[in-house]
Design a protein around this nucleic acid. Structure first.
Lengths: 210, 210
DNA sequence: CTCAGTCAGTAACATTAGTTACACAGCACT
DNA sequence: AGTGCTGTGTAACTAATGTTACTGACTGAG
C-alpha cells in the first residue's frame, strides 16, 4: 500500500504522515458499480482515492436520482468528512464509476491529524473547497443549461473520468443520472449525433468533440 | 463588540479565542442590499454574522442570477474560507438580505486559529458541512421541485430569515432570485393566492401557511 | 435457430415553463 | 387633476421537456 500512497499522495504529505496512513488505513479494490455509501449511512471511515473514479449522487424522497459529480485519484469525499465529524447521516450516495482502488482511514484520525499535520489540514480544507466548487458547477448545469447542453457536458465528464472517448452506457442509465426520461435522452442524443458531436452505438457512445 | 461576540459565539468559543477575535476583528453594520462580496473578488477577511441575514447568489456568464441560500446569525461564509486559503476568486456573490451586523476577521487568523483552538477548527468544519448541506438543499429544489413548489419554498425561507410572515418584495425581484421571468412568478403567485397559501399586495406578500 | 429480454428510435400528445404584448392600478410629484 | 413611473394581471403564443405507446434491432441462453 505504501507504494500507492507515495505515488498519489507523496507530493501532498510528509513521510511521517504517509507512515501513519499506512499503518491505520486499509487498502480496498472496488468493482465497477460497487456502492460505497448510501444515503442515511453513518460513516466510520473516509476514502482516499488511489485510482478509478467514484460518482456522487443525490436522491429525493420519491427515489429520483441526480448525479452531482465525480471524485478521482487524489481526492477524498468531503461529505464523508463532515458526516463523520458530527456523527451525522450521509446525505449522498457514492458508487464506483470504474474499478477503483482506495485507502480507507478511520474517522478518528482525520480530526487527530488536523491538529498534528499542517499538510493534512490543507488537504482537508482544499478538499472541501473542491467539492464545493463541483457542487456549484452541478448547480450551474441544472439551473442555467438546457437539457442538450447538460447532456453533452455529462458525456464529456464521463469520458474524462473513464479516460476514454467511448463510454459504455445505456440511454436509460443516462436518464437516471440526469433525472429525466429515457425518451428525452434518446431524442437529444440523436440530435447530437446529427450535429456530428457523437456517434451512437448499442450500449456505448463515442464522443467526437471532446 | 465583545458583548455581541459573547452573545453569539460564547457557547462555541473559549474566552481566550473570543478575546483574540475581539482584538483583530472589526465590527460592521451593513444596510439592506449592501453587497459584501462579488464574483471574482479576492477575499481578505471572513465574516462572522452577529445579526441579520445575507443571501448567497450564483451567476452565470450571461448575468443570470440564482439564489443559493441564506446565511444567518452564528454562521460564516464557507466559500469565503476556501477562497482566502488558496488566494482564489470568489465563486459567489453575497448581499445583505436585511440590515446586518457582523465581525470581519483577517484571513491569516483563520488558519492560525485552526491549529491553536480546537473549537475554532470544529466551527470551521461544521460551517463547511452546513453550507454543503444548504447547497444540496438548493440542488434538490432546482432539480426535483416544480416551479410552484420552489416558489413557495422560496417565500417561506425568505419569511424565515426576515422573522416576518409578510415579506417586502416585488414579483420581478423573485424572478431574479429564482432565475425565471416575472410573468411566470405572477402567474404562480396568483395560483398560490387562490389556493389560500398567501395574500398578495403591492410590494409585499403575506405567507399564511408557514 | 428460436425465444426472451434488453435497448434504441420515433410519433403523438400533455404539461410546464418562457415570451411578447398590452391593460390597468397604485403611487409620487407637480 | 394630470403626468409618469413602477408594479401587477392576463391572454395568447412558442418552446422545452415529460409521457405513453408502439416498433424493431440486437444479444445471449438454450
Amino acid at each position: 500500500m505504501i507504494k500507492e500512497l507515495k505515488e498519489n499522495y507523496g507530493y501532498l504529505f510528509e513521510d511521517s504522515l504517509l507512515m501513519e496512513i499506512n499503518s491505520v488505513g486499509t487498502f480496498k479494490e472496488l468493482p465497477e458499480g460497487f456502492q460505497l455509501i448510501d444515503i442515511g449511512d453513518y460513516i466510520k471511515s473516509m476514502p482516499l482515492l488511489v485510482s478509478g473514479a467514484v460518482k456522487i449522487l443525490r436522491e429525493d424522497d420519491k427515489g429520483d436520482e441526480l448525479l452531482l459529480y465525480f471524485i478521482e485519484r487524489g481526492d477524498t469525499c468531503a461529505m464523508t468528512l463532515s458526516c463523520c465529524m458530527g456523527q451525522k447521516k450521509s446525505e449522498i450516495r457514492a458508487v464506483a464509476e470504474t474499478p477503483t482502488k482506495l485507502i480507507m482511514v478511520p474517522v478518528e484520525k482525520m480530526s487527530e491529524w488536523m491538529g498534528k499535520y499542517k499538510s493534512w489540514q490543507n488537504f482537508i480544507l482544499q478538499s472541501y473547497h473542491d467539492r464545493m466548487t463541483e457542487l456549484l458547477e452541478a448547480v450551474d448545469a441544472i439551473a442555467f443549461l438546457k437539457m442538450d447542453e447538460r447532456l453533452f457536458k455529462y458525456l464529456k465528464d464521463k469520458a474524462m473520468v473513464n479516460h476514454n472517448e467511448v463510454i459504455q452506457v445505456t440511454h436509460q442509465q443516462i436518464a437516471f443520472d440526469m433525472h429525466t426520461s429515457r425518451v428525452v435522452i434518446s431524442r437529444l442524443l440523436k440530435t447530437l449525433e446529427i450535429e456530428g458531436k457523437i456517434e451512437l452505438h448499442r450500449n456505448s457512445i463515442k464522443i467526437l468533440d471532446l
